[in-house]
Design a protein around this nucleic acid. Structure first.
Length: 428
DNA sequence: TCTGGGGTCCTAGGACCC
DNA sequence: TCTGGGGTCCTAGGACCC
């Protein structure tokens, strides 16, 4: 059996690139895509990155800079990004079925069995790049290595160093080149090394990837535990993290949002909670699970020191595990009644579905009414079908409200070009 | 005025069992 | 007077990821 060879394919500035595909005027213009509620920058074009704007910078803090440099800000358009992501994955499946969709814009591929058809790994990477560019218009970079962690690092090199032309196979570099690369990259760039660990490593004079690579595994194990030791081994070419081709069922499902403006009344909170339950329950049914408990939470704006703060949550167990939006909504609203305190300006609420189990393995209950259960299943199926056809929340419970004055802001959303007939791009 | 949302895994410590 | 040892399960909190 040949040694594993991983490729990490990652779309450059994914959300911004999706917007540019359909609006070429955004090309070579500085563009940011904002988080829900138009809060923070979650995607930045290269022009914006070179202005020094960091990931997660609040929009209101960069407005002056944005105005000075003509930065275009867009609200996030998840319908568009989700659809573009699916197209990229479909193309990648044409290269190999051994693929793990790691996030909306990244996939790992096992390529050792298909490399020979392309000559070498770099040529394979270039073919991937060219095909995705031609079929979707999106730019990607490809990093290749013996482990996922090395592939990630190679992807970083492919992005940062123009001489690689978007594809870097770490093992095609000479030992000296490899060392030079590792010496120039901060240890924080390594997959699995976060800000906290960086600070602790710096105290040990470990600053670059090279320093970390040369560290003693025993010391890493004793001070940092098994997780970072695994990262160290992966960097040394020992594959510890395998390709997860089949995405496991979620163990919890969360739905929550910040409000467009502060909310004080319990009526508005009820609407928001009911809305989020509906979203979460739809996901729950999509993976054919039941929830045995649910957690509902509310919080005030933690950035407002001047205002009284309240941050509370309550876990509500269910009599029977359920996937019925009505049952889950009733439980969540009952929890909310107990949580609610008058006199606060709430900023966010949310719901977590917990203790999930596969529906097909559900334990039948002697005292449960099977007719009601069957009706519930039918109703939920019809609701999901209608919402799939006509858009999320087309059919919803009255509890989620009509006006929804608390709804999040999305003032700069582009059309859902690829998923709505009435928003198709028009060529004149 | 304005500060995202959704996940997973690991560890330590306590409760509990035989 | 003397008071074991091994194990599991659960939970909270921390760290990480995109």
């Amino acid at each position: 059996m040949s040694e594993p060879q991983f490729a990490l394919v990652d779309v450059n500035n994914f959300y911004v690139s999706c917007e540019r595909v359909f609006n070429p005027r955004l090309e070579s213009v500085p563009v940011v895509v904002l988080s829900n509620n138009d809060g923070c920058a979650v995607a930045r074009s290269n022009e914006v990155k070179s202005l020094g704007v960091k990931m997660g910078t609040p929009w209101f803090k960069m407005k002056a800079l944005a105005k000075a440099h003509g930065v275009v800000a867009l609200s996030s358009n998840y319908a568009l990004y989700g659809d573009m992501s699916a197209r990229v994955v479909a193309i990648l499946r044409g290269f190999t079925p051994a693929i793990e969709v790691y996030s909306i814009d990244e996939s790992f591929l096992r390529i050792e069995s298909v490399v020979k058809h392309y000559g070498d790994a770099v040529r394979l990477g270039q073919t991937v790049r060219a095909r995705i560019a031609q079929w979707t218009g999106l730019p990607v970079c490809v990093g290749i290595g013996a482990t996922k962690t090395i592939a990630k690092l190679a992807n970083h090199l492919a992005k940062k160093r123009p001489e690689y032309d978007g594809v870097c196979d770490f093992h095609s570099l000479t030992a000296i080149e490899q060392e030079q690369c590792l010496r120039t990259i901060d240890v924080g760039e390594v997959w699995g090394v976060g800000a906290r660990t960086v600070r602790q490593l710096e105290a040990l004079q470990i600053q670059t990837v090279w320093d970390f690579y040369r560290a003693k595994p025993k010391a890493i194990r004793e001070q940092f535990g098994v997780v970072l030791t695994r990262t160290w081994m992966e960097l040394h070419g020992e594959s510890c993290l395998s390709l997860e081709e089949i995405s496991a069922d979620k163990k919890q499902i969360i739905a929550s949002r910040s409000f467009g403006k502060p909310v004080e009344s319990i009526d508005d909170l009820r609407q928001s909670v009911a809305t989020y339950v509906a979203t979460a329950a739809e996901k729950l049914r999509a993976q054919q699970s039941l929830a045995a408990a649910l957690h509902v939470f509310v919080m005030t704006n933690r950035f407002k020191d001047s205002e009284p703060q309240y941050d509370a949550g309550l876990t509500v167990p269910l009599a029977y595990p359920s996937d019925d939006t009505r049952t889950l909504t009733a439980a969540a609203l009952a929890g909310l009644e107990r949580l609610y305190r008058k006199g606060y300006r709430y900023k966010k609420s949310g719901v977590m579905l917990l203790d999930l189990s596969a529906k097909r393995l559900a334990q039948a209950d002697l005292f449960e009414d099977t007719q009601i259960k069957a009706k519930s299943a039918r109703l939920m199926r019809v609701m999901d079908q209608i919402n799939q056809t006509w858009g999320r929340c087309s059919l919803r419970s009255g509890a989620s409200g009509f006006e929804q004055p608390w709804a999040m802001r999305a003032a700069h959303r582009s059309p859902r070009y690829t998923t709505r007939w009435d928003e198709l791009p028009v060529v004149r």
